[in-house]
Design a protein around this nucleic acid. Sequence first.
DNA 1: TCGTATGATTGTGT
DNA 2: ACACAATCATACGA
Length: 344
Amino acid sequence: MLQQQPIAGNGPMSGRGLGLNAAAGMHPMNSVHPTSQHRSDGESGLEGSENGHESRRDIGDILQQIMTITDQSLDEAQAKKHALNCHRMKPALFSVLCEIKEKTGLSMRNAQEEEPPDPQLIRLDNMLLAEGVAGPEKGGGAAAAVSAATSSGGMSPDSSLEHSDYKTKLSQIRTIYHTELEKYEQACNEFTTHVMNLLREQSRTRPVSPREIERMVGIIHRKFSAIQTQLKQSTCEAVMILRSRFLDARRKRRNFSKQATEGLNEYFYSHLSNPYPSEEAKEELAKSCGITISQVSNWFGNKRIRYKKNIGKFQEEANIYAMKTAIGATQQSEDSPHTPNSTD
DNA sequence: TCGTATGATTGTGT
DNA sequence: ACACAATCATACGA
């Protein structure tokens, strides 16, 4: 009769009771209401009432399960894991853990991650845009520019042909640039998706907050944009080389038109004693010959030195132009005999 | 293909 | 800023 009691006291309730008490002992909140264990047998119904007591029991429950999880078999653990995952208190715990994680370590880097726009990247972008490599496809725009240049600047007809060669090469660079850029973008997206999926998967069992995922995505994007910067840089270099090869005026030397050379020679030989045209004279010559003032200066510079170096060679030319001016002078004097001729 | 002509550039001096 | 001299790189004719 008497022997029953102590044995019965250690019955099926013991595991749970001990567990709860142990958990309650670890959790400061539960120690306030030790009476809550009275409800241990009221599992059916009455859940809506007395919410405070309920949640305290729940937390204790979860913690207890966590504490004992290492003692369980794999299947058991999986089942427990699933149960924990589905537990209604899980989101709350999850957010607390995320918060703690935010406050430690990882968040330190957050402050300096505010990216200042890279000035070098902006320069590269601007240049690529200016060269027509980046930005929208320009079909009519370039053609219009070329035709405008040809019509306004008295360019020889084949210069536009060579310009189109330049354009072809440029569009090749453009195509390569865009394919590469697209490739990088695709790789970046794939990688980002992969990492995001991975982190989302992990976030079911680990405190990985959406913010952390976002941050990781940011890091990946920065890495890829660094690669893109390199691509832009090498594209810029290629364009510069192309420019220097095709648009360098020295390589594209064209002889002046016959009329232009004639006009220049006329002035030169009629001012042989002082072949230094004034600023106004240069302007006048430039206009009449359809060349620039600096081209006039270059021409006179070359002419003076080459004439001086070999007067004999230029004698014939000198005679021809002397004759021309003489004829011009006689005609002029015939027109108006009173005007004295003074050619230099 | 080669030699010469020629326009442009560079370095130097004033 | 300009002139000169040397040089470059292409144009052009034989």
